[in-house]
Design a protein around this nucleic acid. Sequence first.
DNA 1: CTGAAAGCGCTAACAT
DNA 2: ATGTTAGCGCTTTCAG
Lengths: 341, 341
Amino acid sequence: MAKRVTISDLAKELNTTTSTISRALRNHPSISISMRKKVSELAKQRNYQVNSMAANLRSGKSMTIGVIVPHINRDFFANVISGIEEVAKKEGYSVVICQTKDKIEKEKKCIETFLRTRVDGVLVSVGLETDTFDHLDQVKKMNVPLIFFDRVQESSNSMSIVNDDVEGSFQGVSHLLDEGYKRIAIFAGPEHINIYRNRKQGYLNALDKRGIKIDKKLIVFNNLSYDAGVESIKELMKLQNPPDAIFSSSDYCAVGALHWLKTNGYKIPEDIGIVGYSNEKFTSFISPSLTSIDQHSLEMGRYSAKTFFDLIKSDKKDIILNSLSINPKLIIRESSKRKRI
Amino acid sequence: MAKRVTISDLAKELNTTTSTISRALRNHPSISISMRKKVSELAKQRNYQVNSMAANLRSGKSMTIGVIVPHINRDFFANVISGIEEVAKKEGYSVVICQTKDKIEKEKKCIETFLRTRVDGVLVSVGLETDTFDHLDQVKKMNVPLIFFDRVQESSNSMSIVNDDVEGSFQGVSHLLDEGYKRIAIFAGPEHINIYRNRKQGYLNALDKRGIKIDKKLIVFNNLSYDAGVESIKELMKLQNPPDAIFSSSDYCAVGALHWLKTNGYKIPEDIGIVGYSNEKFTSFISPSLTSIDQHSLEMGRYSAKTFFDLIKSDKKDIILNSLSINPKLIIRESSKRKRI
DNA sequence: CTGAAAGCGCTAACAT
DNA sequence: ATGTTAGCGCTTTCAG
């Protein structure tokens, strides 16, 4: 019904011009206090709301930052998003979220939409399928700041906020060794994704440090889903010399294995120890509760956003490529606490 | 660096006008096929992308729909969002998500942002704190379609997509009775939220139907968090005549209770049966796995979005207030399967 | 089938 | 301290 009120409506009512209104609304110092007050009062009364579409078109900024994640229902990503939102809000920015479900096609669609809607920056964690990067290069070609978090495109010279995954899994595996486990298997993910490659590396390093020979049979690649965990553990336990502990690059996959083991009569942590990765909330719900690696997801989100704002505030000259690596933290729970022998 | 290319750039290159380009790009039938081809080829070549800010300003539509949820990391809401996105994408719309963490202040901020950015519609599931509705009325006053899902403002005459929560909990509680449980307690949520009031009602109805007297001591109001579940069960088990089953209006709260019971020596489902609500993914991870009520979250999202599109496509004359109620589904798992006596 | 012209609502030089 | 003016990039009558 009622058309929405514009600054020129307000201008007419106060017998002044749109520029004055525009300035007054944004508290421009050159507008008299009395005028500012009159304007803001009228605005409130008439229920005026800036039309961002117009303001943004004019100013060339959308005041929006686009975030691309594989899954929004993972605690890890949900927390990252919260962190991003928190600092974005402070700067007056909106956050629009796009979930790819790990599909590269969806990822491309997201980018297209973001470019069309002129987001001022893109923060992205790439999907499992993502092994080509034209769509991401596109963003940079358009001169839109691109920042990676967690799962990054390493060939890119964009900034990235990541965990030290090598360290995280090093700690996880070392912990298992400390608890007396001898044959530790790993659920590893796609090698072209940095985090999974690094988690495997940490595993290798930990074994190496203790002089334990790597048994390739204990390195299982899968897609890290719950179901994959079930299938993989089934295979592992068929081995002539099965593992006595599992280090999983994902909590979901760890739980799949845990479940299968329990229903098949294995005792956890007595017979088999398990460590997951990401510290999803459910890891503390299940029983035995699952030892996992916390990634400081909220901070990761905050840093990612902060990096973006630092970037656009810098004179674009001193574009310091300060990529950041956050130390993860081992959270020890029941699934790996074997009484020492 | 390179300014982004506009339709007038393309127009110049082809010695034509912006109107022609604009039409050609959108496959307007009055433009010759050959011209359309020339334009789309050049556009591709020059890497042209519509500037939605400009297009939207002009057309008065933002092609964006705003979604407000309490928590994005809940499977229920994440799935609703997926459903919304799915149908929105088909219609060429973007979805922007705002999470309130159940805070009314955040909810208000979301609305403000949405109104400023001129979303074409708002889909909302209100927070636990929300007991006043000025901010939501505001949306309708601005003539922006407002659609509720799951947690609704009942005083509003807006459309809403909900579950039949009375039926859902009726089934859950009846199932417990069928399994031989006699004293069933309920974890109930804030009474001003439709879903929690309805879930309590279903509980009452189920007991009533079997002629079981209601014991007020078994009706526990809390905020339905994990911690609340722990506290509440602790209190319940102190009763002279403690319950032998729990019907929880939330999976999280149910798990809290489940955990406490297990660590305190109670056997589930033998000593105590538990049923949760929402069918969060972790309910099948934990042990015993948790019987719960599935809410067809994906469908709820799809319907919500569909309702929005139906609405804006109708000539705004036949605004049929067709609110929809979806039947939930009881998912029976271990936590409630007591061997019949 | 294509062009000319107006304008969506706002901001920001450049006046005054 | 305020007003004038000129667009931002696109869509859409209205004319040919």
